[in-house]
Design a protein around this nucleic acid. Structure first.
Lengths: 203, 203
DNA sequence: GCGGAAAAATGGCTGCGCTCAATTTGGGAC
DNA sequence: GTCCCAAATTGAGCGCAGCCATTTTTCCGC
């Protein structure tokens, strides 16, 4: 019971944190990020407003918390989906398609998330987002590494540079779509041609 | 006098707009974007708070206005600087180095700008930022096109895809630096290796 | 000039995110 | 069981961006 009772306080905190994040998730989805007030989240989670800000320093942090766990899962799914295909290009496209499909479920929320990714301010945010980036880049690096084995990718290619460049291209075009510069069709085209060009090179 | 008197109203608006943007510019630089209040900008510009919001719908828009003209000029300088060199890789690096040097004058403000680039919400913003993007991508495309002439770049390479991919890599690493994931030295290395890889290709 | 209509400017007001002094809760020492 | 302290919770209050009913300025037909 000692271990359990020590855990009691932590247990409550964890459960409360879960309620807050779940409430935020639901409200963000239902009425949008900007349109949801801290008071509403607090009410839905059954806590006072002030309590929210002991679990997340800002409303923005809450958005990151909402995405964090889900995104890690999506990255795993994206990787699994990519592994089903053959050929590095098809694999990478499949990987990003899975991620886009996830974002397409709620484009406004994805748009709000993208704003935060471009403005990491606190150490908390840096840690959470850094974890996501490590996960995505790691999986992409694995795909590239796999392609090295069967000679699709040159042995001298630095894995992380390749992973970062692939992601950079995806990220840029995703932003263009979420900001309303291009539609989904144009996005697909742009992503494919960008990845294709990175594979063959300019020279 | 007819033409001038018709212009009088426009003249005043333009001059007032100039004062507001200049005041915002100075205050953002002096005490930071978040730390500057609309009231302070209004006082410095000699107008009422409400007036600001007839020239810019939000404080965010004001930030974009502040950068817009300067950025167009920086892109021109970056292009001029790139043309001095030979070899597409060196040119592209010189181009981005000029842009980074500009942002380095005020990293916090560059960071704030980056947040807006990732969250274009109004048609006004889309127009202003779209103009910047067109300018940057156009110049990059020109550099790539020039390199095509002397065979450094394959004739079949689509110019805009190349320009977008180059920019995407720059943008991604710039964001990493501004968000505090990497320092300037790592940025330089990452940018160069990313561009190098795009030139040679993964395959 | 003058009248009036349209455009621009104004600033008190509202609703928001977030703070912080005061209060409640939980858990160990005895 | 009781006491005590630290950790957790609370919500009224604060400062901010942005709104909008009112006032001021500008322009044109006469």
């Amino acid at each position: 019971m000692a271990a359990a009772s020590i855990g009691r306080r932590e247990q409550n905190k964890l459960e409360k944190r879960g309620r807050i994040v779940a409430a935020a998730r639901a409200l963000f989805t239902y009425k949008g990020f900007e349109e949801t007030t801290s008071q509403e989240i607090a009410d839905a989670a059954g806590v006072a407003v002030g309590t929210i800000f002991t679990y997340a320093r800002t409303k923005d942090d809450l958005l990151i918390l909402v995405f964090h766990d889900e995104m890690l899962a999506v990255v795993e799914r994206a990787y699994a989906s990519a592994r089903k295909s053959d050929g590095i290009q098809v694999q990478v496209v499949a990987f990003f398609d899975t991620m886009v499909a996830y974002h397409e479920q709620d484009l406004p929320l994805a748009h709000a998330l993208m704003r935060q990714l471009g403005f990491v301010s606190s150490a908390d945010q840096r840690a959470l987002i850094g974890e996501l980036m490590t996960s995505v880049l790691g999986k992409l690096a694995q795909l590239v590494d796999g392609a090295k084995a069967d000679g699709q990718v040159g042995a001298a290619v630095p894995l992380m540079t390749a992973a970062r460049s692939l992601f950079a291209i995806y990220y840029f075009h995703l932003g263009s779509m979420l900001s309303g510069y291009i539609d989904r069709t144009q996005f697909d085209r742009a992503l494919r041609s960008g990845i294709g060009l990175l594979l063959t090179g300019l020279e």
